[in-house]
Each structure stands twice: as C-alpha cells, then as structure tokens.
Write a protein that binds this DNA or RNA. Structure first.
Lengths: 245, 245
DNA sequence: GAGTGGTCTAGACCACGCT
DNA sequence: GCGTGGTCTAGACCACTCA
C-alpha cells in the first residue's frame, strides 16, 4: 500500500493500480466510496494533483466516478454494451474475403432509398454491388448507395477495395464520419440469394445495414451486406465501463 | 480564439472546445500536429497544467494522442469498431420481451459443452431454457448453462427475469465479469425451431452466443439465444476513437 | 542544445453536500 | 462549518526527439 521506492512506476500510476486492484478483488465494491483525495495524499505522501491524476486514470477506464462535494465512488459495471471490431471484407479469424465488383450505375433513387439517404425521391445516386468470396465460395453480397456528385470521380480501384465508410468520407470531402449499423437475419434480394446460393425459398442471410453519417447525423451513404449463414460471424466483447449515450 | 472573459466555462474546457472544433471543421487534419503546450499556454494566458487538462480531455475522447519529445497529433479516426447496446430481453425500440421459463435441470455436460465451459466432460451443469414472446408471438429461445455449485441456490424468480451475465456473476460470487458474444445466422436446435415456428427445413435464426468470463478469462457460463428472423435487430454505432485492443 | 511532452509540488480559491 | 471534489497557478526536473 505504501508507495514503492526506487520504482520507475509513476506515483499516480501506483495509486491507480492500488485502487483498481482493490476493486477487482472485491474489497472495494460497486457503489462504495473510495478514500478521499486528501486521505490518499497522506497515505502515499504525494501532492493532491498527483493523486487526482491517478483517479483520473481510473475514471477514464470507468472504474470510478466522482460526485462534487461528496466523494468518488466505485462504478457499477455494465454488461449491456459490447464492442465489435468490424472489419469490412475480413472475417473473425482475420482471413480476407476476395471482393469482386459486379456493377456500378448511376440511378434515380426510389422512394425507400431516397428516404434512407435523406434525399428527394428521384435524386441521382451511385449504386454499386460487390460479391465477395471466401475460399472460392461466395460469402457476401454488398449493395451500396451514395449520392451522385458531379466532379467527384469514383476510381474503380477504390470502389473495389475501399471500405464503404472511408469511400463515402472521401467522396463527400468530410473529415469525420460515423457509422450506424443494424444487424439482423432477413431475406436477401432475389439476385443476391441466387449469387450466394442461399438455400430455402426465403433466402435468409445475416444482414448488416450500414449508414454512414456526418457529424450532424446527415446521411452520406447507405449500404447493405447480405452474408451467407454460418460463413459470417461477428464477435464482440463487453465494455463494462462504457460511458457513452 | 482568445479565452473568453466573464465566462463560466472552465479554461481547460475552452482549450478543448477550440481544438476539437478545429479538428471537426477540418482545419486540423488527422495526423497533423496541434500547437505545443507552451504555445497554448501563451495564447490563452493560462498555466501549463491547465492546458494539459484540456488536452487530456481530447485525448480521452480520442481526438488526439501525444508522442513524448515530439508533440501531440490529431488521431486518425477508426470506423471499424462499433458499439452495441445489447439489453437482454429488450429489443431495439425498448419494448420488453415476455420471458417464460420452460425448463431447469442439472445435467452432466456433454463434450462440446464441457469444452465451452472449460470443465471436465461429465461435470454437472445447470441448464435452463427460456422462451420469450413479443406481442404474444414467440421471439427468442434461450439456452443457458452454468456450472452446478452446491449451496448456490438459484431462485426461480432470478432465473426467469435476471440477465444471464448478472445471474452468473451472482452465482459465482464474482464482482467483475465480462461478456464475449458471437453473432451469426445459423440453424436453431429442432425443439427451438418448433417452438419459435421457424419456417423452412433448416430453421435459420439469428444466433447470439454469450460467454460470461471472469477477469482471468475463465468461462463462468455459456448461453445461446435463437431469435426469430426479422423480429430481432441489433443497432450499433461506430466509436471512431475507441482505443481498446 | 533547444523544444517537446511526462511527472510532480505546494500551495490557492471555489461550489457543493452534509449536519 | 467542515470536508469533498473542481479548477488553477507558477514553478520544477526528467527523458525524449531532432537538428
């Protein structure tokens, strides 16, 4: 508990380690108050700013949170948020899918698409379709749309290999974009079902819908990926101290 | 750019706002260096610790990162990590599923299960099955397993309503657990397919596999949820500055 | 050697929650 | 009124990078 001498570990880090240890082994329980800053100063013989630096570390990691005028408390971990690392064109074990561009067109957006993209019906959009293979077998069919912009040439190489959000960002000249994704099991369009060789008359696939959004939530692009069942898995891990939303 | 006077906004916060604004509007581009700490001190007429507090905020948010001896740089956002808020027994729009406990048994683990749970084959495990309804229609079938522990009574109320990770945590007397989840479209077991009224001979469903892990990655519980296609969707948003893994 | 970020001090004043 | 955390200062020494 006393601060280790002759150590290259910074003092603030030792404070953080000590407290996170106490939390992990259960001596400090969720909801409980941790020692006050001045107590920690005294215990470790360090200044308050240094103690605060350590507590800040724990706060970032989500172990604790503080209430002005009262104290700092151990956070109750949340198990309902999970983080997925989703790499387009790459599956769980890191193997790469072989993408094949099977169509690029400028079309007029039908109503449903215009709505998804936040455009007027009939507006011009670029549609492109990709079919990706894994081990010579078709694994995913992608259908992507982004507003047509004169003078924003889409290089075929890019369309073929680039991840969709990055493509959209470059095309719209935005520096920061976000992605919103929806996952479900649903029917693939007939042509996709055929190309993917989906069994059954309803052609169920794992569907990943991606909306690429600007910082102000304006939709910049929309796409849908139909994945062959079983071939495509997503793994995710809980982020117990996520603080977003 | 100059620090606002007569403002109740803390100085460090103003520094952070100014810089994040510059990043968002693209005047500071990913990979570029931001002004040095001493430059910011001078510009705002504040001390270095205060500037650092502001930069720390941006660092936490993932906008910038620093390189000792060189400077701080605008981070290139990542679009390949997304965060899902997954609430067991609750769907996208917040509606609750009505759970129904349809079986609890102590069984001896078959090989595949023993492997999932990291136990010896034949070890005793508690199996329970739940069927959840949405609008009177079956929506999800859950199959969960956790090691049988003498003297750790499982209250029916809990089994029926509690989220699985929380149940496991309480049962194993662990304070901190993690969840690893895998999502895919796959075949449901025959009994599940029948109860859910899945169409087609292969009975495809959206499958959510959950492993509940201790901090040391030991498996504490394993479960699988089979969701009726289309009824169940997961939405996720990108976390452009996630720093994990 | 000049400049950078990383760590740390020993103070200060404030708003807040309690009692 | 006392203890809490939130903000802020004006210094300090260090290790590091780069010219």
């Amino acid at each position: 508990m006393a601060r280790a001498r002759r150590s290259f570990v910074p003092a603030y880090y030792q404070v953080a380690e000590y407290l996170s240890g106490e939390i992990e082994n259960g001596r400090l329980k969720p909801g409980e108050a941790i020692p006050s800053e001045s107590q920690l100063c005294e215990r470790y013989g360090i200044s308050r700013m240094t103690v605060r630096q350590g507590l800040n570390l724990l706060g970032e990691a989500g172990y604790i949170h503080s209430v002005p005028g009262k104290g700092s408390y151990v956070t109750v971990p949340r198990l309902d948020t999970i983080v997925i690392e989703f790499q387009e064109g790459r599956i769980e074990d890191g193997r790469r899918l072989e993408p094949q561009l099977i169509g690029v067109e400028v079309i007029e957006a039908e109503d449903w698409l215009a709505q998804k993209l936040g455009m007027a019906p009939g507006a011009k959009v670029v549609e492109f379709r990709r079919l990706s293979h894994l081990d010579e077998k078709p694994a995913a069919y992608e259908l992507k749309y982004l507003p047509y912009r004169k003078g924003a040439p889409l290089v075929e190489r890019e369309i073929r290999y680039a991840a969709f959000p990055a493509l959209v960002a470059r095309c719209c000249e935005k520096h920061l974009v976000k992605v919103r994704m929806t996952l479900y099991t649903g029917a693939a369009p007939a042509d996709a079902a055929q190309l993917l060789g989906l069994p059954g008359e309803d052609g169920l696939a794992l569907v990943l819908e991606q909306s690429v959004l600007a910082q102000d939530d304006r939709v910049l692009g929309w796409g849908s990926t139909y994945c062959v069942p079983e071939a495509y898995r997503l793994t995710a891990e809980s982020d117990p101290f996520w603080k977003g939303i």
